[in-house]
């Protein structure tokens, strides 16, 4: 069964001032699949996923060329509603970043800023998102305690749950396990595999094994260029490019 394309990037160039950070990137991201972006530090993988929910808008002096289309929506079009886009495209960051508020307030934040006031509805959504993120049993008795009391792994799952509350279509993971121990990492990976049934997932990772474990597709980037993009099993077994092979065998990176 051929997967359905969710996001289509066409000839993306990205500039920090005069520095060209992304060079003519084109790739399709498929619905209900996990797409991993790998490559050495500074290769542009984080920059690329931050284009999908326009987080790079926050950095002054940047410029993007080319198009990213999601379900027919031109993401970079000036008239695109960024707030709505970010509701549809959730993001989980490198370091767990719960707000210094209670667990419940963290969870309900996304709904409240969208003007939701119905308490029962909010509670229902919060509980179901916590369950989806496999965190509900850990925190059900202390929903009103500070989120900063949770362990690092729990905090990261809370951040995942926090973006599930607003029911996004795509979830971007920017090295979500970079600051976690192996056990927490495994839990997050299991969660990602579980979530791909309902969501389209893009994950940036430093860890090649992680990419091999969780992703269906893998894109290898180097110095702002997309070197190779294919099914994960092909990339890891029969890479077409020599550079990919060298990176995967640890010759550089």
């Amino acid at each position: 069964m051929a997967p359905e394309t969710k996001i289509c990037a066409q000839h993306i160039d990205f500039f920090y001032g005069r520095t060209r950070a992304l060079k003519d990137i084109s790739l399709d991201i498929y619905a209900n699949r996990v797409t991993a972006l790998i490559g050495p530090s500074g290769c542009g993988k984080s920059t690329f996923i931050r284009l999908i929910n326009r987080m790079n808008d926050l950095i002054p002096g940047t410029r993007v060329e080319g198009k990213i289309i999601m379900d027919g929506l031109d993401i970079n079009h000036p008239r695109t509603d960024v707030v709505d886009l970010r509701r549809r495209v959730g993001m989980v960051f490198q370091k767990p970043n719960p707000f210094p508020k209670s667990i419940y307030e963290n969870m309900s934040y996304g709904l409240r800023i969208n003007g939701m006031k119905d308490r029962n509805f909010i509670e229902q959504r919060v509980v179901s998102a916590l369950k989806k993120a496999a965190l509900y049993d850990d925190v059900k008795d202390r929903l009103h305690e500070s989120a900063l009391m949770l362990s690092g792994g729990q905090q990261q799952r809370l951040c995942i749950a926090r973006c599930l509350v607003v029911e996004p279509e795509v979830i971007l993971f920017d090295e979500p396990c970079a600051s976690l121990d192996p056990i927490s990492t495994r839990k997050i990976e299991e969660l990602i595999l579980e979530l791909k049934k309902d969501y389209t997932i893009v994950i940036v990772t430093h860890n090649m094994q992680q990419a091999a474990r969780v992703s269906d597709y893998t894109a290898f980037m180097y110095m702002g260029e997309l070197v190779e993009y294919d099914l994960t099993e092909k990339i890891f077994t029969v890479p077409k490019e020599r550079m990919t092979e060298e990176y995967l065998s640890g010759k550089f990176g």
């Binding site: 929910n53 987080m55 926050l58 707030v83 709505d84 970010r86 509701r87 959730g90 993001m91 960051f93 370091k95 970043n97 719960p98 707000f99 210094p100 934040y109 996304g110 409240r112 800023i113 969208n114 951040c159 926090r162 973006c163 607003v166």
Partner: peptide
């Protein structure tokens, strides 16, 4: 931390909401 701001914006909050909440 910038991460609080990013988290809020990534959830679809606008600048004013991020600032006040």
């Amino acid at each position: 931390p910038r991460s609080f701001r990013e988290a809020s914006l990534a959830l679809g909050a606008n600048r004013w909401q991020t600032l006040t909440r």
